[in-house]
């Protein structure tokens, strides 16, 4: 489905990141194409969060380069990535419960009227338009407080907030983790609509069943290394699970960067 002859929207090459004695990422490559949904999977501690925090500018990488739409770019802080058009929807959604849908969607980028006061009416209209464009119809009004919304509605608002600023790539961290069946369905449909609009969508999820419904491609991380890049049409859930749990490691943890006094014998996978 993803046209691999195109230029990737986002191209990450050779990213490594170390926290003290823990090597969180080893030489990881990632490409995200416009209009595709890429599922980023891996066990706990595989480095998924570190990778997206590197892309979003929350962590500075030790080595590695970024290209956006073919152009080399620097991502040093969250503003750099959002200026490029990369938006991240974190698991906690980062919404203010006490503010309404419109106020949340415009938080930090409010519209002003002629006298410098907030232009609530224009913001409401634009928020409603964005939600309509994404076919988020379960929301009664853009004046509802977030506290009054269900989990799925909140997730939809967080996604709409991310994409309303002409973003080109959206990263979703566990978008369905806290949701029921019907709400999960809403969010999955929303993700498909984003890719249909030409956005590159990177989804982190533990739920392979959900991911298989929406993703075009899977990238598997294991112990900080990329161990597989699988196209959905050519793979099965079984293969993805195998890659997550026993994917071939390029580097053996502990032997790459440390000076060691002796060889270890218990690493069967190399």
């Amino acid at each position: 489905m993803a046209g691999h002859d195109q230029t990737p929207l986002l191209e990450v090459s050779g990213v490594s990141k170390r926290f003290g004695s823990v090597q969180a990422l080893y030489d990881v490559d990632l490409e995200l194409y416009p209009g595709e949904v890429l599922g980023l999977v891996g066990d706990n501690g595989a480095g998924k969060s570190t990778l997206i925090k590197a892309i979003s500018g929350n962590y500075k990488v030790d080595t590695g380069t970024f290209k956006f739409q073919g152009q080399p770019v620097q991502i040093n802080d969250p503003k750099d990535s959002s200026d490029l058009g990369i938006e991240v929807v974190y698991q906690d959604l980062a919404l203010c419960d006490n503010l309404n849908v419109t106020q949340n969607m415009f938080l930090g980028r409010e519209e002003k009227n002629g006298v410098g006061l907030l232009d609530e009416a224009t913001m409401q209209r634009r928020a409603a338009e964005t939600l309509k464009r994404l076919s988020v119809t379960t929301l009664g009004s853009v004046n509802l407080n977030i506290a009054q919304l269900s989990g799925g509605q909140r997730q939809s608002v967080a996604v709409a907030k991310a994409v309303m600023w002409n973003s080109k790539a959206v990263i979703l961290d566990e978008p369905t983790a806290a949701l029921g069946v019907a709400q999960t369905r809403q969010v999955l449909e929303l993700v498909r609509r984003l890719s249909a609009e030409g956005l590159g969508v990177l989804v982190i999820s533990h739920n392979l069943h959900d991911l298989f419904e929406i993703a075009d491609r899977f990238m598997v991380l294991r112990l900080g290394q990329k161990v597989a890049d699988l196209v959905k049409t050519e793979t099965t859930q079984q293969q993805v699970v195998e890659a997550i749990t026993a994917g071939q490691l390029k580097y053996v943890p502990g032997q790459v960067t440390d000076d060691r006094d002796g060889e270890r014998e218990d690493n069967g996978n190399n």
Binding site: L93, C96, E110, L118
Partner: peptide, 21 residues
């Protein structure tokens, strides 16, 4: 009706979300 006022409410509602915004 001002940005500043809106941010006061936002910080009171969710300081981390405000920081990220």
């Amino acid at each position: 009706r001002t940005h500043f006022g809106r941010y006061i409410y936002a910080v009171g509602g969710n300081a981390e979300a405000s920081r990220r915004a």
